[in-house]
Amino acid sequence: MAARDGEGRKLFEGAELTLDEGRLVLLEGPSGSGKSTLLRQVAALLETSGVSRRLDGEEYGPGTLARWRARVTLAAQDAPVLPGTVGWNLEFPFTFRHVRRDVCDAASQRAALDGVGLERLPLDRDVATVSGGERHRLALARALLWDPTVLLADEPLAGLDPDRASLCFERLAEHAHRAGRAVLCVLHEGVMGFSGDGRLRLVDGRLEEA
């Protein structure tokens, strides 16, 4: 993988990344080193030529990237949401064509919210009225409910107080440790005390085991 920033400076080049099943790996590096860009590149949201993607031995080339994203899913920075209700924000991925799963029901949506400490957030609340911290946990609940093979989480704990951050990190670790699952996670600046099963550092355009 390779990428440049907005000014054309090289962020990383020739980067390779392998995730083993059942592991939660933290991606670290100084700010501006391209961690988010790397996650977006893995999620196939950036220019895709020259990148080869493989999952469970299956190659994902041109024409298959929507399916790739459904399995290797990015929970993006700043927890974006769609206009509508909380429930719709949990449910919309299940309406896409590539999905062969049943539409998720209200009970599983409720359980997903409860899991990240949002017991008191009703499913029919307009998402425009939820707070920043709630929005971050909603985005995480959606990603966990979606249950991707690989979850790429970009600063999932931003804006959360320590108790809620550890609750959410616990959920991420649970997801990673299940059979056939893995998580690659970037934590926000200054967050301490969380460790995964492995660490990767992105420094000066190179990706190395830390």
Partner: peptide, 16 residues
């Protein structure tokens, strides 16, 4: 853009 990419990230096709 963030909403469009959010749909993509969860497996939406170009049309979706």
């Amino acid at each position: 853009r963030a909403e469009v990419e959010l749909r993509l990230a969860f497996g939406a096709t170009r049309g979706e």
